[in-house]
Amino acid sequence: MLELRLVQGSLLKKVLEAIKDLVTDANFDCSTSGFSLQAMDSSHVALVALLLRSDGFEHFRCDRSLSMGMNLNHVSKLLKCASNDDIITIKADDDADTVTFMFESPRQDKIADFEMKLMDIKSEHLGIPEAEYQSIVKMPSQEFARICKDLSSIGDTVVISVTKEGVKFSTRGDIGSANIVCRQNSTVDKPEEATTIQMKEPVSLTFALRYMNSFTKATPLSSSVSISMSSDLPVVVEYKIAEMGYLRYYLAPKIED
């Protein structure tokens, strides 16, 4: 038996909007530690990893570990039927081939339930070791989204370079080139508006902007984003989900032929 009650149901709506364009079908894994997902995009160059810890749910019952295969477009359609302030409960029996999403209005005067068929999805699970990154940039998530959007009107790839002067996002295309430099500004009043750079070594990597733009769909989840880079690893773009966990995107770099 699985029963997960999430008071801030809008979080789940935002998570689905943030991953459904990157991944079509995925297994949601549920265990006593929480609700998680790991899935690669169809090209096998980007990966999304979600964790919603059990203690972030108002009620979390998971009698035995379950993996529930779902089409993310279908889940997204279904969650669009929930209002932003609805409480969402996910229910499934241990051997069931369906999952039920229940939406309760905050005043408890409207209760809707939607049953969805589960899918059998064979997905490759990747072992991602904890790593020390050469550079970690933390910046406002809206600023990062704006930069990715602006650069993609000029080029297809972005070079992200971190030095002690700041982080530089560069692109070039048929019409010309662009560079955007963000400097550290940790003295701003609100911490979520700060750009901070932890640099052990300077690093410069090239990525496809199409994927970066797709990652920025997670912007509504968090006011800040962290970008962790090492020259020998995929970049990690992480959006923290308040009090509950994270949504991380991994993207393999492009290298010069």
């Binding site: 980007a46 990747l126 393999a252």
Partner: peptide, 14 residues
């Protein structure tokens, strides 16, 4: 010319 690396180059399949 840049070529895209696959994730499997970095992470092992479990």
């Amino acid at each position: 010319i840049f070529i895209q690396v696959y994730l499997a180059v970095y992470f092992a399949t479990l």
